[in-house]
Design a protein around this nucleic acid. Structure first.
Lengths: 129, 129
DNA sequence: CCTTGACTTGGAGCGCACTCCAAGTTTGTA
DNA sequence: TACAAACTTGGAGTGCGCTCCAAGTCAAGG
């Protein structure tokens, strides 16, 4: 349902990223929809580069209840900022890849001296923008 | 100059990510500005998640000259697409983090049933949007 | 010339995040 | 009830990307 492997699920639970996944009589895991949404949120944090130990820390704070909301808020605020940074960094890199592609589409060798190459060099050196 | 460690530089060269870094008489590396821009481009690829083996492949194609421009163009096009995917994925995750933050800012426990919680659940389940 | 610090190499080690395995248990279908 | 498939566990193994180390060489200031 979430695209993660059973092994990863078990690993996440053991690592403390999933809280209170209940079991049936035989001991098999039964994921409630709350478990599922917890997992989905954890996956969003992971997908955006939060290390497992930090996710664990966040999940621990959730378990500790309302007294920790301030800490959690600040964790998420910081993480949101990091995501925004990642996005702008990706945008910068994409620009460079696209300029390089533009060069290829103009049929230029990447070692040629040319306006486009210079633009690329400026971008790479960070002397532009 | 680029923020990468000397060890990483040596590792990248050994791995075939840097082409033709020249040496002085004593065998010490002397990075030309071309080397530097090559490195900077490699770093853009790495920063956007291209694995080292794929960067090596790209660099090998560059070394092989003009006959490989088509392959290189398609590599960069595919990679550009992946970057765009990453960016939209980050945007989706950021939206969810921001909704969660909104909940915290409203002073709600994340386990409360509420409009905002429902919005978050819809986002997590992907039933919305 | 001498010393100190930065460089060279090959190779070992590390942290992260899974991923796989073996041996045993539970579940669902015929 | 039999049996295969899917689950359980602890722990070992894998791949990636560095990062560190030891032993030796080179470079620059006093």
């Amino acid at each position: 349902m979430t695209g993660v492997s059973a092994d990863t699920l078990r690993y996440y639970e053991k690592a403390g990223l999933l809280d209170g996944v209940s079991r049936n009589v035989g001991g098999h895991r039964r994921f409630s929809s709350a478990d599922l949404n917890g997992l989905r949120f954890v996956l969003k944090l992971r997908m955006t580069g939060m290390p497992i130990r930090d996710v664990r820390r966040y999940v621990e704070l959730v378990r500790q209840g309302d007294a920790t909301t301030d800490q959690r808020r600040s964790i998420l605020q910081d993480h949101g900022d990091r995501i925004r940074q990642q996005m702008s960094e990706l945008a910068r890199c994409l620009e460079i890849v696209d300029v390089k592609l533009e060069m290829y589409d103009l049929g230029l060798s990447p070692t040629d001296e040319h306006d486009c190459t210079k633009k690329l060099a400026s971008l790479l050196e960070g002397t532009l923008k």
